[in-house]
């Protein structure tokens, strides 16, 4: 029985719309996070002096700290960006899709 419903969901053009929109959004965000993270790790591994610049002229605190905290904050905000769209727009398409399939 459920196999038939799955078949109906799959044939609904909204399913392709949902999958392609959500996948491209999720993978874009993943690429941003992984890209920034591995750039950061590469700098740490190969060119650490880049992060050793002081924040304030003649100061001691380096830009490494705010950059680290910034990464953490940014990654969290990106998860927020994702759920904003996923729990709103995507879930709306999703519930329409299921409604149409079981009618």
């Amino acid at each position: 029985m459920s196999s038939e419903v799955y078949e109906r969901i799959r044939r609904n053009p909204k399913f392709d719309e949902l999958v392609s929109k959500r996948s491209s959004f999720a993978w874009t965000l993943t690429a941003v996070v992984l890209g920034l993270y591995f750039i950061f790790i590469m700098i740490v591994a190969f060119n650490p002096t880049l992060l050793a610049k002081p924040i304030w002229e003649g100061g001691v605190a380096t830009i490494a700290w705010p950059i680290g905290a910034g990464l953490i904050l940014l990654f969290w905000l990106l998860t927020g960006v994702y759920i904003r769209r996923a729990n709103g727009e995507f879930d709306d398409i999703n519930s329409q899709l299921i409604k149409e399939a079981i009618e």
């Binding site: 799959r10 399913f15 299921i98």
Partner: peptide, 8 residues
């Protein structure tokens, strides 16, 4: 389909 929609 189930993974994407949560149906079932």
């Amino acid at each position: 389909v189930r993974a994407q929609t949560g149906f079932g």
